[in-house]
Design a protein around this nucleic acid. Structure first.
Length: 272
DNA sequence: AAAAGGACCTGGTGGC
DNA sequence: TGCCACCAGGTCCTTT
């Protein structure tokens, strides 16, 4: 479900409902997520006040004075702020009861997500410390992306989805950004010029920022923390549009598998 | 070191 | 209606 814009959207919608609230109770119904949920979570969290919620890559960090909850939504995870008496549905794995009489509920059909507790600085955590740069911060430059691509023969689409280099770009937005930049997704990463990477970075930022402004992309079931859908689906130029006409040139959009992921491109606007 | 493929899960869809 | 193959917004791990 969530790429960077969706996680950012959820974070923003949760912030006013979480920050400065006291965690009164934690209920774990299912521990079998990507990594087991620590059954001591209630003892770590109950009585604590949420200081802030932030995002690193596609992880959400819920911080108290004692430590941080690292939450990843995997492919199908979601977080919702709900009234306390909301009936439990299948795959509602964890509830965090708040002093506001609301609950923060973690739901994840496929259980690829995780909820972990750490008392380390989040950046030092094993899951975060090897992560690459945030795409929306000014520290990232097209030159960095270009330099790291030297001697990389993999498809540029896989390269820009590599979290060790730049985080947050998943399958949908990789497709969209490459289309905007006019770059064929299957070109070797090392083949692109510095100017290509500079242009690509601008396109990545434009796509991500626009998607955030529209509340993310709801393909089937994504919503923010309050249940609102995202409207960037209406703006998708290339993802999922195999057989349709390119919005730029009218040629028929093609589809191919790259690294086992669905890839879409315009054979005219994104020449090999 | 880099690339490719499998693994982890459930559910929806479309074909027969 | 049922069964089956295939697909899905992520990312870690093993093998080549």
């Amino acid at each position: 479900m969530p790429e960077l814009p969706e996680v950012e959207t959820i974070m923003r919608s949760l912030a006013p409902n979480l920050v400065e609230k006291i965690i009164e109770k934690v209920i774990i119904r299912e521990t079998r997520l990507r990594w087991p949920v620590d059954l001591n979570l209630p003892s770590y969290l109950e009585g604590q006040t949420v200081q802030q919620i932030s995002r690193r890559s596609k992880y959400l960090l819920v911080s108290t004075l004692n430590g941080h909850l690292l939450i990843h939504l995997g492919m199908s995870g979601n977080l919702r702020i709900l009234p306390q008496n909301t009936p439990v549905k299948k795959h509602d794995h964890v509830d965090i009861h708040l002093s506001s009489q609301q609950i923060l509920r973690y739901h994840d059909t496929r259980r690829f997500g995780c909820i972990l507790w750490t008392t380390q600085a989040p950046d030092q955590h094993v899951l975060l410390r090897e992560l690459g740069q945030e795409p929306l911060t000014p520290e990232l430059t097209g030159d960095y992306w270009y330099q790291r691509a030297r001697s990389r023969k993999l498809a540029v689409k896989n390269y820009i989805m590599d979290n060790h280099i730049v985080v947050g770009i998943g399958n949908i937005y990789a497709n969209e950004a490459l289309f905007l930049a006019g770059i064929h997704p299957n070109r070797a990463a090392q083949q692109l010029t510095l100017a290509d990477y500079q242009r690509l970075l601008i396109c990545v930022r434009r796509v991500l920022n626009t998607a955030i402004a529209m509340g993310g992309t709801t393909l089937r079931d994504f919503t923010d923390g309050t249940g609102k859908e995202g409207y960037f689906k209406n703006e998708l130029q290339i993802y999922g549009r195999e057989g349709e006409k390119c919005t730029q040139c009218g040629k028929i959009i093609k589809h191919m598998q790259i690294g086992q992921r669905s890839s879409y491109y315009c054979p005219h606007c994104q020449a090999e």
